[in-house]
Amino acid sequence: MECQECHQRPASLHYTQVINGHKTEIQICEVCAKEKGYMTYPEEGYSLHNLLTGLFNFDSNHVGSPNNPLKKEKELECTKCGLTLTQFKQIGKFGCGECYHAFSSSLNPIFRRVHSGNTEHRGKIPKRKGGSLHLKKQIATYKSQLQDLIINEEFEQAAVVRDKIKDLENKITEAGDSK
């Protein structure tokens, strides 16, 4: 059967239109269907951005349904750049560093999705700005080691680790004094 619009290509689509109870059958090819607006195609390509925005809005279906709007969510706004949580979820981008604090309560699920379950940074600490952060992290590691050693009653080892912690703590106070 040929397309009833162009009478050239074979009709590959069959539509049934019902207007006010009046039924019309349409035999049409894909090209004409597109032109006449019988078919709508989404914008070509699906960018990473669309995908991300989709990811961030994961809770809108259950929690923020029209009957039960989450008022609190609407009020969350970054005091520094003025971006709201809703806007953040729409554009998928933060406005400034402060946004990370402002939206902190909502970020973990997003980070978990994007970074396969991770929410805490474990990489580089900036040399200058990080300051005593390196030492603090080291102390935390030693302290958990110390706990284990005490539980296992390895007191000699524990004493060594305890001294290491003291050394590092002294370093931090020294650095603080010199500033």
Binding site: F94, F111, T119
Partner: peptide, 17 residues
């Protein structure tokens, strides 16, 4: 830079390192 989130970036897909 944030102690818990690392280097802060405009897109959440880059945060951390």
């Amino acid at each position: 830079f944030d102690e818990s989130r690392g280097f802060l970036t405009s897109c959440p897909t880059n945060v951390g390192t």
